[in-house]
């Protein structure tokens, strides 16, 4: 039987179903990280591509030169440390703000009527489909010195001089919370809507106050939603580029912006790679946390 022989060598349906997405993600998502790691040990060079090779053949010997200068540079220059610290601080505070604003919103949606729920969810989701660039740009017009907010505040007489909001960290916070709020609300809602209301009824029958039941029942039960939401905000914000670039000013030091400048303005690919490797090292714990909560969610045993 020729066909059965052939079949043995061809991947079966099962392997193909697993293999196609696996290969794609491996090739275009995982493998690139190793190349970044490799290039972070190279030296910048005036060439195409602008870095030196690690492996060189000289006098029948293979010469592998691991150049640590890029990492030493990151340690030496205070700018990089300040940028990492600034990014993590910015991400931490905005995640907290998103949680404080998003939790009540997700809760309100989860207790709304089914019909209203769909509409509210779409209203929350729609902005995530709109270019982040445009939503951030909208704030530029509002926050600028002669913008709408300052005009309004002057009109009602709260201030005489326009406040400098655009190009400060305050503007970056506003922009980040504004852009990432939906990513906090959606996983929280997905979790809250599954809660069994009878637990709350039981606790209120037993004389617990509303806040007490909320704090001791609803919040602990929504732990997975809180983790997913916080990670969906925290991790991308650490590497955020668009918002600090458009709304931030000279005081805004964030690593995404520094990496962009090293890459596009200085054309120093090895230093940009080293910056990415260190950023990844900082984010690895949150990413693993997120993946775990996501895996539970995906397999339905949350």
């Amino acid at each position: 039987m020729k066909t059965s022989k052939l079949k043995r060598y061809l991947p079966g349906g099962r392997q193909a179903v697993i293999g196609i997405p696996f290969l794609w993600l491996f090739l275009f998502f995982m493998l690139p990280f190793f190349i970044v790691l490799k290039i972070s040990f190279a030296e910048a060079d005036v060439a195409i591509p602008p870095y030196t090779d690690l492996v060189q053949f000289a006098e029948d010997k293979i010469d592998i030169a691991l150049n640590l200068a890029n990492y030493l540079l990151l340690g030496d220059d205070d700018l990089y440390f300040a940028a990492y610290f600034g990014s993590v601080k910015m991400a931490f505070i905005s995640t907290l703000l998103c949680l404080l604003i998003g939790y009540p919103m997700a809760y309100a949606i989860s207790v709304a009527k089914k019909e209203t729920q769909t509409v509210l969810l779409l209203l929350i989701m729609m902005p995530t489909w709109t270019a982040i660039l445009i939503r951030v740009y909208a704030w530029m017009g509002i926050l600028s010195n002669n913008g709408l907010l300052n005009g309004f505040l002057q009109f009602i007489g709260v201030i005489d001089q326009p406040l400098q909001i655009l190009n400060t960290n305050l503007a970056v916070y506003i922009g980040i919370v504004y852009s990432y709020l939906p990513f906090m609300i959606l996983p929280l809602f997905a979790n809250l809507v599954k809660h069994d209301q009878s637990l709350l009824e039981a606790s209120s029958d037993l004389g617990s106050s509303r806040f007490n039941s909320f704090w001791k029942i609803t919040v602990p039960l929504s732990k997975n939603g809180i983790i997913a939401g916080c990670m969906l905000v925290f991790i991308p914000v650490v590497g955020e580029f668009v918002i600090p670039e458009l709304l931030g000013g000279p005081e805004t030091l964030m690593i995404g912006k520094v990496l962009w400048q090293e890459f596009f303005n200085n054309r120093d690919w090895p230093v940009a790679s080293a910056l990415a490797v260190v950023m990844l090292a900082i984010l690895i714990v949150p990413i693993v946390l997120f993946n775990r909560s996501q895996a539970k969610e995906l397999e339905g045993r949350a």
């Binding site: 997405p21 696996f22 993600l25 491996f26 998502f29 995982m30 970044v36 990670m231 969906l232 991790i235 991308p236 650490v238 590497g239 955020e240 580029f241 995404g256 990496l259 962009w260 990415a276 950023m279 990844l280 984010l283 949150p286 990413i287 997120f290 993946n291 996501q294 895996a295 995906l298």
Partner: peptide, 12 residues
Amino acid sequence: LVTAPLVMPEVI
């Protein structure tokens, strides 16, 4: 591999 691209910073 499936879930990590959701959160990976775009610059990386």
